[in-house]
Design a binder for these strands. Structure first.
Lengths: 218, 218
DNA sequence: CCCGTGAATGAATGGTCATTCATTTGTTGC
DNA sequence: GCAACAAATGAATGACCATTCATTCACGGG
């Protein structure tokens, strides 16, 4: 229940209400799953009335889609900031930043990951979801490949395949997120982080040290 | 439509009907997703009448659960056969067999993977699904860790961490399956296979060659 | 202070779907 | 053949839920 003490209803700008409903939707998907979600649950979670979801989003389907886009856009923005920033002193620092970002608290937050995988699980049967998931991924994969190629060039490594390494990193992180989310006892977040770091360290030995213990704040 | 020409109904043993319904459920989940599935769709796909699902499974929920168990058990059996077989000439051959199995046609079949990830996507909000998914995974992870430890011992490698490598391999394969399933154009199966092979080759250089081109039958 | 505007409400509506069960139909033992 | 039994059917039932909309209410301009 999110009600912050208000007893009387108040008119608020559309954007505030939409954000409020999207946050409630994220919580509800995490708690009840995509097939258990109802507008009654979402609006109750938001402390609002039944009809409000359709008022601001026209339909349940559009609310779900905007919720997915909200989550993916947030991740894409953070990642793009790292891939495009001018502030990194070295390629190794940039790759490390990418890794740390992928396991930072806002990214591995339980509810958001739950939303992400809930939609992915339905993606192949719903082209709309599939497009929302893939949209920015293609571009990210290209940029990560370029970054990895740069690291290989700096190391004089002509044998390794940057595209293969990038595809592997992306899939590895997806798999780690999924396993840590579903059963954190079998795969604790700290261990997941170390696995990903090890993957990068063995591909870019000159840029990334193996032993640095990160993620201590978890 | 699966009707194989029969026009009149026929009484068949319980097990045959259950199998028939589970196969139809797999197809329907792949086509419509977990939140779009209905008993009408499943029974129509099976060429049977509406009431038959409840007759043999008591409820929709139990049908879904048995379908999940069917898919996981099939995978677990194939994997266990490799991990326990006495017939491998070397540790390297066993690891290679594990890899080839993970990307063999029956395992990467679109419909089965779709079922697997559909349930995983709902797993954190449904303890029943979570248990069905995790049940055998813990044991598999232990056995794979032992296998990897054996390979490290044989290579005289005392620095590497078998548990970390096993967790990484399992998550990597999950991530590769997911990405190849959702968008095979961005990650073709052949490339996914090469990524996984590369992961193992860099961990077990003495046991697994990098360049062998597998998966030509795809 | 009092409207006019539009945000918000929630009871009512209609559609979808799991589940039930009376009936039909095939099978098996005699 | 013929009961007796079990499997299978699908129309009927009732629960649940997205969506609608008449009504209520808060706010700002005059």
């Amino acid at each position: 229940m999110t009600r912050t003490g208000n007893k009387s209803r108040r008119a608020l700008p559309k954007e505030v209400r939409k954000e409020q409903l999207i946050q409630a939707t994220i919580k509800c998907i995490a708690k009840h799953g995509l097939s258990g979600i109802t507008l009654a649950l979402v609006t109750r979670e938001a402390g609002l009335s039944m009809g409000i979801a359709n008022l601001h989003f026209d339909s349940k389907e559009k609310l779900l889609l905007e919720t997915l886009q909200h989550v993916t856009a947030e991740y894409a923005a953070g990642q793009a900031a790292i891939l495009e920033s001018e502030d990194f002193s070295s390629t190794g620092a940039r790759i490390t930043a990418l890794l740390d970002f992928d396991f930072s608290p806002p990214v591995i937050e339980k509810n958001k990951l739950a939303v992400w995988f809930a939609f992915l699980g339905e993606a192949k049967s719903r082209p709309t979801y599939q497009r929302a998931c893939s949209r920015q991924d293609s571009m990210a994969q290209m940029r990560i490949t370029e970054l990895f190629q740069l690291a290989l060039d700096e190391a004089g490594d002509t044998a390794a395949d940057a595209a293969l390494l990038a595809a592997g990193y992306i899939s590895l992180v997806d798999g780690l997120w999924l396993n840590a989310l579903v059963d954190p006892r079998r795969l604790p977040w700290k261990k997941a982080y170390r696995v990903a770091r090890h993957y990068l360290a063995s591909a870019f030995a000159q840029h990334i040290a193996l032993d640095k213990r990160g993620l201590d704040g978890m």
